[in-house]
């Protein structure tokens, strides 16, 4: 190799190293920033009062920063979304992986993955003009902006993740398991239910966790259709406010350096911890499959 070639090689190599490490450095920087701003809040308020406080009145005097209604709001909307999207998503994954013919399989899989490309504001908008009035009418509510509406729209957003990853997991189950089951006289359903499902379970679980991660972090759609009332919800038919919507809605009006501003960062930390734990669990299961 000539001299110019060597120099070129050297620079390209370094450039790749820089690009690679930059992505990690950015993540670390974001994390440090979040921690620094958020933890400042706990100089003024105890962690216990923050997490278990039942009132979120950031602008009253004295201001109250109890994040419990927001956590419960997020949890309720997420649980509702999971109750809808897990059965539908897993059943859909089995349909695509096991039942439908190969040509249709491609069409369906692409279609469902396209669903992931719809911007969440569009999903929120569609929910607002179609689903919200429907929920209001069916349940005779004063408003259709409820946790239920949010759950239904979020279920749509979790579906692509769940279906796509669960389908991969099911397809990755070695064919010889299915053959063995059928050769023993199992019906197709018996083979799916007792053999393929068991073998694909870790992958399906990971798919569900990643779906939950997507739902918990979602902001725009829930802000548009869940009503944004920071009160502790008792049923799915009440307005709720989620952690994410709170940050998005209030960050603009919070004065930089105020307690309110730091409290929103503290909410961010909670959100970060929740999504980190969920992704971490999903990762453990995904790695288990690779082994």
């Amino acid at each position: 190799m000539n001299k110019i070639g060597k120099v070129k090689e050297f620079f390209i190599e370094k450039l790749i190293v820089i690009c690679g490490s930059l992505s990690i450095i950015f993540v670390i920087l974001i994390f440090i920033f979040l921690a620094r701003e958020g933890l400042t809040f706990f100089k003024y308020e105890s962690i216990k009062d923050f997490i278990f406080g039942r009132n979120w009145y950031p602008l009253s005097n004295p201001a109250r920063f109890g994040v419990l209604p927001l956590i419960l709001g997020s949890v309720m909307v997420t649980l509702g979304a999971m109750a809808i999207s897990i059965p539908l998503g897993v059943a859909c994954a089995f349909y695509i992986a096991e039942i439908v013919n190969p040509k249709m399989k491609d069409i369906l899989k692409t279609g469902i993955e396209l669903l992931a490309a719809i911007p969440s504001v569009v999903i929120g908008f569609v929910g607002m003009v179609t689903l919200v009035p429907m929920v209001k009418k069916i349940f005779h509510l004063p408003t259709g902006l409820t946790a239920l509406s949010g759950s239904i729209m979020l279920a749509f957003m979790a579906m692509p993740t769940i279906v796509s990853i669960a389908e991969d997991a099911i397809t990755a189950v070695p064919k010889r398991y299915k053959e063995a089951a059928l050769a023993l006289g199992a019906t197709h359903w018996q083979a799916i239910y007792k053999v393929i499902l068991v073998a694909a379970a870790p992958g399906i679980f990971a798919a569900i966790m990643l779906g939950i991660g997507r739902v918990i972090g979602e902001t725009m759609a829930v802000m548009m259709i869940t009503g944004n009332a920071a009160v502790i919800p008792h049923t799915l038919l009440e307005p709720v406010r989620t952690l994410t919507a709170t940050i998005a809605a209030e960050m603009g009006e919070a004065i930089r350096g105020s307690n309110h501003y730091y409290a929103l960062y503290a909410v961010g930390i909670i959100l970060f911890i929740i999504t980190f734990v969920i992704n971490f669990i999903a990762d453990i299961f995904l790695h288990r499959i690779k082994k």
Binding site: R176, Y177, A180, A183, L184, G185, A186, K194, A199
Partner: peptide, 27 residues
């Protein structure tokens, strides 16, 4: 069920020995 088959590569289910055998009976 009348014509059983043993394959080229051993293909037990990823389950316990007991459950491998009980599967065909449960089915």
């Amino acid at each position: 069920q009348l014509v059983g088959m043993v394959f080229q590569k051993p293909n037990p289910f990823p389950k316990s020995i007991y459950n491998n055998l009980s599967y065909g009976l449960e089915v």
